[in-house]
Amino acid sequence: MDTGTWREWGADDASEWSSAPGEHDDKYLRGVLGVITGSPDYPGAAVLGVEAAHRTGVGMVRYIGPRAVRRAVLAKRPETVAVAGRVQAWLLGSGMDSANRSFMLAGDLQHALASGHPSVLDAGGLDLVGTHTGPTVITPHARELAHLLLERDVDCSVEQIEDAPAEWAERAARELEVAVLLKGAVTHVCDPEGTRLTVTARTHWLASAGTGDVLGGIIGALAATHHERLAHDAGAITRLAATGAFIHSEAARRASDAVDGGPVVALDIAREVPRVVGGLLRR
């Protein structure tokens, strides 16, 4: 497979996709992110994604996931709106089991994907790729991507993807006709139109539970904030995903630096996101 040239996405690139609210902005102009994530078994996925989205600077987060998870989300972030309503982008699937969806949850997910709004599909929402109607990015790690491709009769293995992530990210983008963010020490972000971007991890302490949920929240917030751009430039979702990966990686580095290079947890990363965004805005 010919993967062409991949370009490292850095601070200067990410700063072009970072914006502060203006004097005439309100929460709707700033963007509303709808979130359907988490489950009774994994409520933390929803808490982490919502936390990260708020801290990225979105106008509003609307959580309409499972009722049992809603209480945990509101206990951590009471500014979250927990009823259905206006949404301008979606974050779907984190912390869910695709094989164990209720009829109501399946309906909510399909309604979101039929809305035409930008979507971020993660973890338990990855199998829904292909039913989306708006600009969409999927955010698998190697094991999830292998499972997704095997379900579509593409012969591959986790080991093959880990050995050649650039090739498989690009193939997945073509096969699935969607933007792909393949997570790893070097994250590969690409789309069927030929955009090929990498983001190199600034600390390997990112390899821990919950950090992917934080990444999903960051990208979802960026998609909601840029919903007007995405309405006429669907390909922008790829660059927004790369920007989210850069913010995520830099926030992890800062969190680790704050403890002398020591280990960090997902919430530590989310707390550093506003400082990273502020730094990008100052550029």
Rank of each mutant, 00 (worst) to 15 (best):
G38Q: 08
T37A: 15
K76W: 08
A75T: 09
A52T: 12
T131Q: 15
D26A: 04
G279E: 15
S15I: 05
R86V: 07
I247L: 10
A45R: 02
E272R: 14
P274W: 11
R282V: 00
R143K: 11
V277T: 07
T225C: 04
D257I: 01
Q110D: 14
P40M: 01
G134M: 02
L148Q: 09
S115D: 15
L109V: 14
R67L: 13
V50K: 12
A68V: 11
E8T: 15
L206Q: 10
H132G: 06
R152S: 05
A112V: 03
A251C: 06
G216Y: 07
G184P: 06
L181H: 02
D213T: 07
A169S: 13
G31L: 00
H24E: 12
M104G: 00
D122C: 12
R282L: 03
Q88L: 01
V186A: 10
I161E: 03
V264Q: 02
D12H: 11
T3Q: 08
G59L: 04
D2E: 13
D268F: 10
W9H: 09
A185R: 14
A236H: 07
D213S: 08
V61P: 10
A266L: 10
V186N: 03
A270D: 05
I269A: 04
L182A: 11
V154H: 09
D12V: 11
V199Y: 09
R174D: 14
D122E: 15
L109N: 10
I161C: 05
A223H: 09
D213R: 04
G93H: 12
A14S: 14
A106L: 01
G116K: 01
A84P: 08
G279W: 00
A270W: 05
S19N: 02
A46E: 02
E162T: 13
E144H: 06
M96W: 04
R282P: 00
V47C: 14
H24V: 01
D257E: 15
R283D: 04
I64C: 13
